[in-house]
Write a protein that binds this DNA or RNA. Structure first.
Length: 155
DNA sequence: GCCAACGTTGGC
DNA sequence: GCCAACGTTGGC
């Protein structure tokens, strides 16, 4: 069992969107970075915990808790010429990018990035490192427990 | 909209 | 295989 932080732009897919989806589950598509892909492909397992992070918005932060709900499979958008995520170098025989399904578990309160930066127990998070922009990053059990506790306070 | 930091591309 | 140029990310 591992823990992850995954970034989504809420204008595209918000945590509430996932809560509202059938089975509270969506395909996580559009990852186009090799390091992030390799985490998904090589290290994720069904049931791993996910911190669902909202990026590129007015108040970035953790919006809820989710879990990995499938094994990795080819990201369909790479084959779709009309998609912004289309990759002309990807083929059905040799897919380059993958998706996993993500299931929303609980929302809790919103935990803003500004608050996360103020918490010493979180200072080593990959997310908080200077220049870090990985859309999928590992989270330690200690960081996970700290954040889950914060999400569950003063609902 | 700005811009620092990072990743990718492609000429050599 | 180097590395300059370019494109992207994402907070502010």
């Amino acid at each position: 069992m591992r823990y992850w932080l995954m970034k989504s732009e809420p204008d595209e897919v918000s945590f509430d969107d996932v809560l509202a989806a059938p089975q509270q589950t969506v395909a996580w598509y559009g990852v186009r970075n090799y390091q992030a892909r390799n985490f998904m492909r090589d290290a994720m397992s069904v049931g791993d915990g996910i911190l669902f992070y909202h990026s590129s918005c007015a108040a970035p932060g953790v919006a809820g808790i989710a879990e990995v709900a499938s094994s990795p499979y080819p990201d369909a958008t790479q084959f779709d010429a009309s998609s912004p995520y289309h990759d002309p170098k990807a083929t059905q025989e040799n897919p380059r990018w993958i998706s996993v399904d993500v299931r929303a578990i609980e929302a809790g309160r919103y935990l803003p990035l500004t608050e996360m930066r103020s918490i010493p127990a979180l200072e080593d998070m990959v997310l908080l490192q200077k220049g870090s922009r990985l859309s999928v990053s590992p989270v330690t059990a200690g960081q996970w427990n700290t954040i889950v506790a914060l999400l569950r306070e003063q609902r």
